[in-house]
Amino acid sequence: MQIFVKTLTGKTITLEVEPSDTIENVKAKIQDKEGIPPDQQRSIFAGKQLEDGRTLSDYNIQKESTLHLVLR
């Protein structure tokens, strides 16, 4: 499925993911596309910070959902 990741600069990245993917996985995909190390990424969805060990389905993130990426 496709999800979108919006950065603070307003750029939107499209990722191909599975509901079973962990947040860690997703951060690795963002690193592949953007070169941002996962330890600098904070992902926010529906106002909640997403934890690395959880999966997209844990957070009820579905296709075409938009995550927000904040850098630390």
Rank of each mutant, 00 (worst) to 15 (best):
Q2T: 15
F4G: 01
V5Y: 03
V5D: 02
K6F: 08
K6Q: 09
T7P: 02
T7Q: 04
L8P: 14
L8S: 13
L8C: 14
L8G: 10
T9E: 11
T9S: 13
T9R: 11
G10W: 03
G10I: 06
K11R: 11
K11G: 06
K11M: 08
T12G: 03
I13H: 04
I13W: 08
T14G: 04
T14V: 13
T14N: 05
T14D: 02
L15M: 04
L15Y: 02
L15C: 02
E16N: 11
E16I: 13
E16R: 09
V17L: 02
V17D: 00
E18T: 13
E18V: 13
E18R: 14
P19V: 06
P19W: 07
P19S: 09
S20L: 08
D21Q: 06
T22V: 03
T22Q: 02
T22D: 02
I23E: 04
I23C: 02
I23N: 00
E24I: 09
E24S: 12
E24D: 07
E24W: 15
N25W: 10
N25G: 08
N25K: 14
N25D: 12
K27Y: 09
K27M: 15
K27L: 14
K27H: 09
K27W: 11
A28R: 15
A28V: 11
A28I: 13
A28W: 13
K29R: 09
K29D: 03
I30W: 03
Q31K: 09
Q31W: 15
D32V: 11
E34N: 08
E34D: 14
E34V: 15
E34R: 05
G35W: 05
G35H: 07
I36K: 06
I36Y: 13
P37W: 13
P37R: 10
P38E: 10
D39M: 09
D39N: 11
Q40G: 11
Q40R: 10
Q41L: 14
S43K: 06
F45K: 01
A46K: 13
A46Q: 13
A46G: 10
A46S: 09
A46V: 06
A46M: 14
G47T: 06
K48V: 14
Q49F: 15
L50R: 00
L50I: 04
E51R: 08
E51P: 01
D52Y: 05
R54Q: 09
R54C: 11
L56Y: 02
S57N: 10
D58T: 04
D58E: 10
Y59K: 00
N60D: 10
N60P: 01
I61E: 02
I61S: 02
I61Y: 00
Q62F: 08
K63N: 15
K63I: 06
K63A: 15
E64F: 15
E64K: 06
E64R: 07
E64Y: 15
S65R: 00
S65C: 05
T66S: 04
T66G: 01
T66D: 02
L67Q: 01
H68D: 06
V70R: 07
V70S: 06
V70C: 07
L71Y: 11
R72H: 11
